[in-house]
Design a binder for these strands. Structure first.
Lengths: 204, 204
DNA sequence: GTCTATAATTAGATAGAC
DNA sequence: GTCTATCTAATTATAGAC
């Protein structure tokens, strides 16, 4: 083969890179950008700090790769499942879209945590996150909120943040929720109950 | 005087302590417990790191004092304003209580930010926060949600976290919201619009 | 590719001058 | 009370062995 050999070494390399990326997603979501050290990320990935520099050039670049990974998952889950839905009742379509988003927030609390971590200060990471990932997502959701859920267009920002907050907070602070209320939000039953509650809230 | 003199020195001392505490509230809310350094907090307070150790014994104790301060403000705002309200229509009372909470979340995004920062991991700070401040607050709000807003008691945790998230997220990530939607959530108009939107959402 | 060693910064806590 | 200097530990980034 003229191009490259898809060797075992290549696969090993990719596997290492993936383990680092996965560990980074979890660590950044758990402790924030500053709180998560590259040493700790390497330890979780079962490797060493030097390899992070090798695969990703800097901590900042690693964080961007982690954000890419999270939003890629969100895009996949939202599009694939909604395509299979019946379009006859727009209000029910809106509700199912919201339920789907709640299920994603429950399975991936990283998204919300990183949004809250990075949205507070107008630094480079925030601007990059908005321009690269948040705006396309916002523009994809907006028509559904207006047409199917019946949100007044002037209230779109309010509906967007109310939805994101109502859908995600409980799962983002799952340990706290469990201690405070006794309910474990990670349970399948709690996820479905929350999905239905939020869907009826925003698209009654 | 036998006890103590309420001297200028004493007032100076308290003023310094207050400046440190206020700087700590802002820094912890902005950068999280790990991200906010005691040196940076001292710098914002216009003093030095040594005085933090003098007034508060450790960074951990300073953080607790900051949390105390935030929840004290919340308690004051929620009780004082609702006392003045007419009780005739319970549904309208619930809506006004929710509006009041949204206004607080807008004026003090620190509360939500610290909740999300500390609620992710079951460490000592999270347990202390739940047992000391969150549980009393939850138990004070619960009856209002059930009786006035008409929430099914089995859905209480869902309603609580949906309310907290819907009310607060937009203000907690105000810089991001502004860049994403063009709307500045700190404006008085946006605050009132959000208060009304969330109130109608949860107590229609 | 993977890993160890290390340089340059920065952290929280402490000691002591004034 | 307030502030400076310093100790120990942990941080990111880099250099280089294998």
């Amino acid at each position: 083969m003229a191009t490259t050999t898809p060797t075992a070494r290549q696969r090993q390399r990719d596997a290492t890179r993936d383990r680092i990326l996965e560990a980074a997603v979890e660590a950044f979501a758990e402790m924030g950008f500053r709180g998560a050290s590259t040493r700790e990320i390497a330890r979780r990935a079962g490797t060493n700090q030097g390899l992070i520099t090798y695969h990703f050039q800097s901590k900042d670049a690693l964080w961007r790769a982690a954000a890419d990974s999270i939003f890629e998952r969100l895009g996949r889950q939202l599009t694939e499942r909604l395509d299979a839905l019946d379009l006859s009742d727009p209000r029910e379509l809106a509700r199912e879209g919201i339920r789907q988003y709640v299920r994603f927030a429950a399975a991936h609390p990283e998204l919300f945590r990183i949004m809250v971590d990075e949205g507070r200060v107008a630094d480079d990471r925030m601007k990059w996150l908005v321009d690269t990932h948040l705006r396309p997502r916002f523009e994809a959701i907006a028509p559904g909120l207006v047409e199917a859920a019946g949100v007044d267009e002037a209230l779109l920002p309010h509906a967007f943040y109310a939805l994101a907050g109502a859908a995600s907070l409980m799962f983002a602070v799952a340990p706290e929720c469990r201690r405070l209320t006794g309910l474990d939000p990670r349970s399948a039953q709690a996820v479905e109950a929350h999905a239905d509650y939020v869907a009826r809230l925003l698209a009654p």
